[in-house]
């Protein structure tokens, strides 16, 4: 009866009402994972469960029995940040930082989905083997993570720089008349 959290086996709480989010934050004091809405709507509590992104607020800890949970605390290798963490710093991927752990875990799960060829709502050809990771694709795939500070453009830049290419990560410039001038 245990869960593997960032590589360490952790006993399950005796009360099945405890959510995975509360297990992480309140029992294990891993407060990197954030509680925003507690209703599945904001993505702040996103963690990786056996490598797949899920919202930990709507996951009961018992449902994760025997499975591997990765939180933002589990991403860095000793003193070296995960490349995506560094890219968030380099490309202004946050302001207050509250949504950031969820954004980062979500983006890591998203990159694996893209690699596997999982289509999205904006994918034109559902039968194509590979999907071009356009900005539109990245934005759609990250739409389950809200940012109240509006750092979304920096977030997409950081994700594109880490998982796609340096060119894809060029800061977004709307083609508005002021910008063209």
């Amino acid at each position: 009866m245990s869960i593997i959290v960032n590589g360490s086996a952790t006993p399950l709480p005796p009360d099945p009402r405890v959510s995975l989010l509360d297990l992480l934050r309140e029992h294990l004091k891993l407060t990197g994972t954030k509680k925003g809405c507690n209703q599945g709507a904001c993505g702040a509590c996103t963690v990786l469960l056996d490598g797949e992104r899920v919202v930990s607020c709507l996951t009961l800890a018992v449902q994760a029995e025997g499975r591997a949970v990765t939180t933002v605390e589990g991403l860095a290798q000793s003193d070296k940040l995960h490349p995506l963490q560094q890219a968030f710093i380099d490309r202004d991927g946050f302001q207050c930082g509250y949504c950031t752990p969820g954004q980062i875990c979500s983006a890591i799960g998203m990159a694996a989905e893209l690699e596997r060829g999982v289509p999205s709502h904006v994918t034109g050809d559902l039968t194509a083997g590979t999907i071009a990771a356009s900005r539109e694709e990245l934005a759609e795939r990250m739409s389950g993570n809200l940012c109240r500070c509006g750092a979304h453009n920096g977030i997409i830049d950081a994700i594109a720089a880490t998982f796609i290419s340096k060119e894809a990560a060029q800061p977004y410039r709307p083609d508005g008349p002021e910008m063209a001038a």
């Binding site: 599945g40 993505g43 996103t46 797949e52 992104r53 899920v54 919202v55 709507l58 996951t59 979500s106 799960g109 998203m110 989905e113 289509p119 999205s120 709502h121 994918t123 559902l126 795939r141 739409s143 389950g144 993570n145």
Partner: peptide, 18 residues
């Protein structure tokens, strides 16, 4: 494709994974 598109239009990737 109607089924794939309907599912992909719902909720978020995290919720669809669950």
């Amino acid at each position: 494709p109607v089924l794939a598109r309907a599912i992909l239009a719902g909720a978020s990737a995290q919720i669809r994974n669950m």
